[in-house]
Write a protein that binds this DNA or RNA. Structure first.
Lengths: 240, 240
DNA sequence: CCCCTCCATGACATCATTTGTCATGCCCTT
DNA sequence: AAGGGCATGACAAATGATGTCATGGAGGGG
């Protein structure tokens, strides 16, 4: 048996990081520095496509979106940014600062609209307000991994829309897998974190429950999502 | 046996109405008209105290808050507005429009800050954006009646912060009571709506379950909330 | 290529929970 | 004081969750 590492991963809830979608290097850098000075972490995407990719990847709390980008108007991707399920907020930053522009931005889905140039303090204050609101949401509710949806509060699981009824133990197991996608999880880890055991019960409880979970997750002929790593443990691999 | 009225009561989710807290009659009226023109319903409170009272009463989606009011600065009541549990958003409207003022407002809890004078279109767009975000929340989740909280998704009940573990049937019963506070519910109604029976099973199932629910709701010495209406049925009376 | 280890799975036992029934006794009302 | 209505403890049946075990199969190392 391997050592029982305890790796704490974050859930897929809307986080407190910010994604900056901005083609101009200078502006992007400045935004990043302003936020960093306020203790707000950020990543940067230089194009709309990259922005969409990053947003789909990590659950940001807020996205700062430029309007005039090489790929088109930032407003165009707001619907897709929304579609990711995380309750991410979108703030548009733009040199187009007239009222009609602002109204257009807000009507097309932005949560806030700040005209350039702006005071760094106001950006920080508005970003904080947005992150605060996002964090206050019961937002940690839905976790999506591939075609699997986990409703934490309701403690239900759906795969491709089909409801998968799980027992409490199975749900806990599912959640632990979901918290560690792509990682090999040894039986010891599972026993510790799902069964709260710090010793080996000398039985195959884990195997049996993994089997039951598999059966239920694949009951309608869906592809497998839990792979056996022979001699080691199991890996949860959500199908993209 | 009485007729089984089905009175649909609203849940405590944040709604789509707007509360205007503004002492100046002219401004308040204009705000109301602007919103009405955009199809957004609103109520008005003329003072901070009235605002707090109304906010506690109805679950607004958005509150428009003036700063300079007779009772003090509107910013002062933001924490209390937040405390109501509904995810209501707060937008501050103020003649104090300098960056420092805006930053102050946002830092003290406002979700948005619009300086007077403003374009009606921008107010509408921002109000819509706020309501949209509030509505996107899993808001219908929490129902509060007096000291009892019902989390619909999680299917859990708390009284005065204490978790009350209920069986499925008990939860359904609790929910039905919560949907009809202050109304006399006959055994027949309960059998119909909680047990899905259209006939009398000739047993005291209802009594037994009401008893069990009572026991659990009052397990820590809390005052009774379900009163027996002798010869008729039961009444759920949440303690204020 | 064969064997041995590891794993998957059906069957079963046990335990806990939920739900409904009944009998008893209290309490309120008249 | 008596009667009907209600509260409640005890019990039983049904259901579901969890863990154990035995068997057979699959896959990798030698």
């Amino acid at each position: 048996m391997l050592t029982s590492e305890t790796i704490a991963l974050g859930t897929a809830m809307a986080g407190n990081r910010v994604l900056i979608i901005e083609d101009d290097d200078g502006t992007a850098g400045e935004l990043g520095r302003i936020l960093e000075g306020a203790g707000i972490g950020s990543d940067r995407a230089a194009s709309l496509d990259e922005g969409l990719a990053r947003a789909a990847d990590e659950a940001y709390g807020l996205i700062l979106l430029d309007r005039m980008l090489p790929g088109g108007d930032g407003l165009d991707i707001i619907p897709q940014l929304r579609g990711d399920g995380h309750g991410t907020a979108v703030m548009v930053l733009s040199a187009l600062g007239r009222t009609v522009n602002r109204v257009e931005g807000l009507d097309r889905g932005a949560d806030d609209y700040l005209a350039k140039p702006f005071e760094p303090e106001e950006l920080i204050a508005r970003a904080r307000a947005m992150l605060r609101r996002v964090a206050a949401q019961p937002g940690a509710d839905l976790v999506t991994l591939g075609d699997i949806e986990i409703h934490l509060k309701a403690r239900t699981v759906h795969r491709r829309g089909r409801h998968v009824a799980l027992s409490p133990k199975e749900f806990k197991l599912m959640k632990f897998f979901a918290d560690h996608p792509g990682e090999v999880l040894t039986r010891m880890m599972l026993l510790e974190r799902v069964w709260n055991l710090r010793f080996d019960p000398q039985t195959n409880v884990v195997d049996v429950h993994v089997g039951r979970l598999r059966k239920k997750l694949e009951a309608a002929g869906e592809p497998p999502v839990i792979r056996t790593e022979r001699g080691t443990g199991y890996i949860f691999e959500p199908s993209a």
